[in-house]
Design a binder for these strands. Structure first.
Lengths: 151, 151
DNA sequence: ATATTTATATCATGTGCTTATGTAAATTGG
DNA sequence: CCAATTTACATAAGCACATGATATAAATAT
């Protein structure tokens, strides 16, 4: 299979799978961007506001506001950087982690129900595709490359 | 692998893949819901407003407004039902199909660029996972079951 | 030391969602 | 059948969340 054909097929499947994902996600009071940002913070550790904005594909003012809301809700914490007095390092709190965990538990539970309806063969195929999916999920995004100083 | 473990692993990968998908989708002036609704209309044919709302996980008023906007943009058409004078059957237009196609082309192009960075082994694994992904994408949603008349 | 750049915040505005409610068509029950 | 209820959609008011323009303070460069 050519890379282009693979991209086309994947793109088509992804479109519908994202829809499935959205219908699986419990109404936790978090917007898609909020949930994705929290997940990034949990996975990558404390991050600068600007990096978060680039990573989630929103503008910097939008991220400033989102972080303010998340901070008010107690899900993240603003911290200062020691090297640079301008930067804000955003970190997830225990409460933020707990909220994420609840969200995931709900989604996983519904997904398990759906997988149960699938045939064992399809389940096996999905299980064997996990490393590839993980590779897909782990692909560096543009914004990860932003921090390449020209030396 | 147990179904529950599979659900957990899938759920975790999906969370990050959705983020990738969002960053791949071109800014076509369509919201996520708008794009998903258009895609549903293309795939399933004309649909009632209420069914669309349930399928996309928004309220009925939200769908009424969305359809009005899409109609103003010429991407969908409102039609009447012959059996029931209350229902509105929403259909995608040729322009709507063209818009969807452009969106997909942009996404596919970026995805192809990313896949090229992956190793051939990972590409092969993804290719072999396509049937399973397709099965996952084809799983009926709750709202598809709504139409089960009690006889 | 001044000018420029960078990181974040603030403000004004617009879109898209929600809840509450209205209207007309279909269905139900006496 | 006709009044009451239900169903499908529309409308309205308000809030969440995004954008673009701009301000401020810290760091860097000339």
């Amino acid at each position: 299979m050519t890379p282009d054909a693979l991209a086309g097929a994947l793109s088509s499947d992804l479109e519908r799978i994202v829809g499935l994902f959205r219908s699986l996600s419990p109404a936790s009071g978090l917007s898609m961007t909020a949930a994705a940002t929290l997940a990034s913070l949990e996975r990558l550790g404390p991050q600068r506001l600007t990096l978060l904005a680039a990573r989630e594909g929103v503008t910097q003012p939008a991220m400033t506001q989102l972080i303010s809301r998340l901070e008010d809700s107690g899900l993240v914490r603003r911290g200062a950087s020691q090297e640079d007095g301008r930067v804000v390092l955003v970190a997830i709190t225990d409460e933020g982690r707990a909220t994420l965990a609840r969200r995931r538990a709900g989604r996983t539970e519904r997904l398990a129900g759906i997988l149960a309806q699938l045939g064992p063969d399809h389940r096996a195929a999905l299980a064997s595709a996990l490393p590839a999916l993980d590779a897909l999920a782990s692909i560096p995004r543009d914004d990860d490359l932003v921090r390449t100083p020209a030396r």
